[in-house]
């Protein structure tokens, strides 16, 4: 039972964070706060992906020791790398593409996906903030309910004007 809970405690904590982000973006009327909530939501997705890729006892996915250059470990000077490349070239000719790994590594794929997602996330966040700046300049506020009220007023005023114009045209 304890093992079951410990195995899933991470997921539950991440779901909690996700719900905090969702709550902030739902409940707050301030647009900047809302964007911060969306970015918390997005970070929690990244946390979830990375936690799936963790392997018990593994290290960061950077090959070391016997997994590279067939034995004499450590160091990555230019000459050593070239020697390693030659060694691998000979290994390639004997046809061993799939190496048996000696050390344990975590899964690199979620890391790659999330690395790019974070950078794209900040880019999209800044597009959203630019839109908010323009909304502030057009409406004078960044509270969504006030923006909605101003929209409503303008729509009603436009309708009244239109009706007036129609009445005048008829008369």
């Amino acid at each position: 039972m304890l093992e079951f809970i410990l195995d899933r405690a991470n997921y539950w904590a991440i779901i909690g964070l996700m719900m905090i982000g969702l709550y902030i973006s739902f409940a707050s009327g301030n647009l900047i706060k809302r964007l911060v909530g969306v970015s918390i939501f997005q970070t929690s997705i990244c946390l979830f992906y990375v936690t799936l890729g963790k392997v018990t006892g593994g290290t960061a996915p950077i090959l070391y020791g016997p997994d590279i250059e067939g034995g004499h470990g450590g160091g990555h000077g230019a000459e050593e790398t070239h020697a390693a490349v030659d060694a691998v070239l000979t290994a390639a000719n004997s046809g061993e593409r799939y190496a048996d790994l000696v050390n344990t590594y975590s899964n690199p794929l979620p890391h790659v996906l999330m690395l790019t997602a974070i950078v794209v996330g900040v880019a999209t966040l800044s597009v959203g903030l630019a839109l908010i700046v323009r909304i502030r300049e057009a409406y004078g506020t960044i509270e969504s309910d006030e923006v909605r009220a101003i929209d409503m007023e303008t729509a009603i005023a436009q309708e009244a004007e239109q009706e007036k114009a129609e009445r005048e045209a008829r008369a």
Partner: peptide, 22 residues
């Protein structure tokens, strides 16, 4: 993911697996 770890050294010769996958 495991396949990338296994074939990376033969294919690219770069120790940090994240960089070749990227």
């Amino acid at each position: 993911g495991l396949t990338y770890l296994q074939i990376n050294w033969h294919d690219t010769g770069i120790p940090n697996v994240v960089t070749p996958v990227l």
